[in-house]
Design a protein around this nucleic acid. Structure first.
Lengths: 123, 123
DNA sequence: CGGTATCCAAGCGGATACTG
DNA sequence: CAGTATCCGCTTGGATACCG
């Protein structure tokens, strides 16, 4: 049995938020849902770089964490939709701030990465 | 050579931000530095659940990404300090929003986790 | 005090194939 | 269309010991 020396309780508020948003696609998913993309196929189309399985996984976690609500319609062909819960909507300021920052600083950051990458490769 | 089928370009601004803040301790570190804790030993003391090595790692990445600046003083015993760059300071609204959200919703979220955990264990 | 090297466990996320 | 099962690699980050 593995017993970590360093437990990591959710003490600082930051940890709580990161625990929820930490997945690779979670902020993207919240952002997509907020923009009216509710069905799994739509979410997959806008996040085409992730496999359906992974998106489904992360949506499940968001659901478990109370951030999104899933509605399954018992029809054929199957249909499902995701909605933000009030909790989820209360996270939108964070998501918006993250998107705004990235949109503003993205190119500059990319340039910095381009400088860094060769250094690692050449080392 | 590993060649992923799904590349993950930094297209949506959100990805850029998560690339920078995605590490387990990065937001905590930025927050700590902003509160005037600059020396490695101080940062380690406030983030006692992480090993010095890991903190150092993440600080290095933050430095490479242009978020913090490191000043090494050539004295004995060794001394170093971290400061936020202007880029780093421009992220503070995000960090603050994350902290505020976690502080507000932390208990409720913890309660939700406590309900979830037994379900997994019992299954 | 600050930093590094080595080793390694675990979790996350991706590939693929399949069912209702 | 939506979801699940299985498999597996990579990355992350934690343990420990050691050097300047």
């Amino acid at each position: 049995m593995y017993e970590p020396k360093l437990e990591h309780p959710l003490r600082c508020g930051v940890d709580v938020t990161m625990k929820i948003l930490g997945g690779k696609w979670k902020v993207c998913l919240i952002h997509s849902i907020r923009n009216g993309l509710r069905r799994p196929s739509e979410l997959h189309r806008t996040n085409a770089y992730a496999t359906p399985r992974v998106l489904n996984q992360q949506l499940k976690e968001l659901e478990d964490h109370g951030i999104v609500r899933k509605v399954i319609y018992p029809v054929l062909p199957p249909k499902a939709e995701y909605f933000l819960t009030p909790e989820g909507e209360s996270m939108l300021p964070i998501v918006d701030a993250m998107k705004a920052w990235g949109d503003t600083h993205g190119e500059e950051f990319q340039a910095r990465l381009d400088v860094l990458a060769p250094l690692e490769a050449g080392a």
